[in-house]
Computed example of a mutant assay.
Amino acid sequence: MPRKLTTTFAALLAASVFTNPAIAAQCGNTSAGYNAWKAAFAKEAKRAGVGKRGLAALAGTTYAKRTIAADRNQKSFRYSLAKFMQIRGADTIVAQGRRRIAKNPAFYAALEKKYGVPAAVLVAIHGMETGFGHFMGDSNVVSSISTLAYDCRRTDFFVPHAIAALKLVDRGTLSAKSIGARHGEMGHTQFLPGNALKYGVDGNGDGRVDLNNMADALATTANYLRGKGWKPGKGYQEGQPNFRVIKEWNAATVYQKAIAIMAGRIEG
């Protein structure tokens, strides 16, 4: 989901990485300058602590035309709330969400006990983002996020996420071939790399963070929301304390309202 808010994290990481704007890689709006940008950005990435594997992944990227097309055409966020919920299959998400919680109540109860985030909210996000893991993307993560970092439209926002993606490659969380959504989001709930790096949690106890694993992804989602200020036991509908935290998940007002409404319906 491309409009996720990561402003504070992005600003802090950008400030730590780019102390000399005179030597920053030059952004562009076509594929023509991408290879030159990639070479310059590799130097910035190395200064930011990216290692050999991450740099090799960057070197292997290609300009992601489908990512740029998707970034220019985000129509659904301009729909009315009713239209948005219809198109995104809200009734199906609610019905399937209830069944998923009923099927594995202990898992969701453990998440809520640890992070304070209701199962219904996590399930609503899971359903909205990937249809409960049925479609987690069709694009190379490193190429997608690097292309957005190069593109002049939102360079400052995506550069820290590109650096984070390369660090995740160094850690083994990502590979140069990892597939995700067209804006570089990963896994069951579509985390941008910077958020995956900061909030990633091993939810299934296997010693690694893999956002293509549902337990890891939902634990990471709960950890993110708690980290953004979720208040356990408080409401999350519009006007209530935790609705502000849902806003941190996605910048689109129609999306925020849809998540709150669906979660409320899932809870019954």
Rank of each mutant, 00 (worst) to 15 (best):
A56K: 10
T189Q: 09
S31P: 10
T19M: 07
H188A: 12
T155Q: 15
D202A: 05
I93L: 12
K228E: 07
A222K: 14
R72D: 13
G264L: 09
G54M: 01
Y199Q: 10
Q240P: 03
L111D: 04
A70H: 08
N35P: 04
G229Q: 01
G184L: 05
G180Y: 06
L111R: 02
A164T: 07
G49S: 07
A15R: 08
A260D: 01
V159Y: 09
A263P: 11
T6F: 05
K167Q: 12
S175W: 09
R53Q: 14
S80G: 14
D210T: 05
I101P: 08
V117H: 02
K228I: 00
S80M: 04
L55R: 03
S146G: 12
Y79I: 04
S175Q: 06
A219N: 12
I93A: 13
K114C: 09
T189N: 05
G33I: 01
R265Y: 04
G49C: 04
R265Q: 15
I261A: 10
A162W: 03
N73P: 04
G137K: 11
I246P: 05
S80P: 08
G60Y: 00
T8W: 09
I163S: 12
L225T: 02
G60W: 00
R226D: 01
V121Q: 01
A181F: 02
H188F: 02
D170I: 02
A164G: 10
A69F: 04
T6L: 12
A124T: 06
F158K: 15
N250A: 10
A90S: 13
V94Y: 02
A90G: 10
R78N: 15
A57G: 07
K83P: 03
A59F: 09
A222R: 11
G33P: 12
L55D: 06
S16M: 09
G268I: 06
M136T: 07
A165R: 13
A64D: 10
H188E: 15
K83V: 01
N204T: 03
V141M: 08
V117S: 04
R78C: 04
G172V: 04
V142C: 06
S175Y: 01
F132W: 04
V141Y: 12
A102Y: 07
T6N: 15
R100C: 00
V169C: 03
V209N: 10
A10W: 07
A56R: 07
A196I: 05
Y199K: 05
G28Q: 12
T92M: 10
G172I: 08
A196Y: 08
K75N: 15
T130S: 15
T253S: 15
H183I: 05
G54H: 01
N140K: 06
T62P: 07
L225R: 04
A110M: 08
T6A: 15
Q86A: 13
A217K: 02
E248W: 02
G28D: 05
Q74L: 14
G187P: 00
S76V: 05
G172M: 09
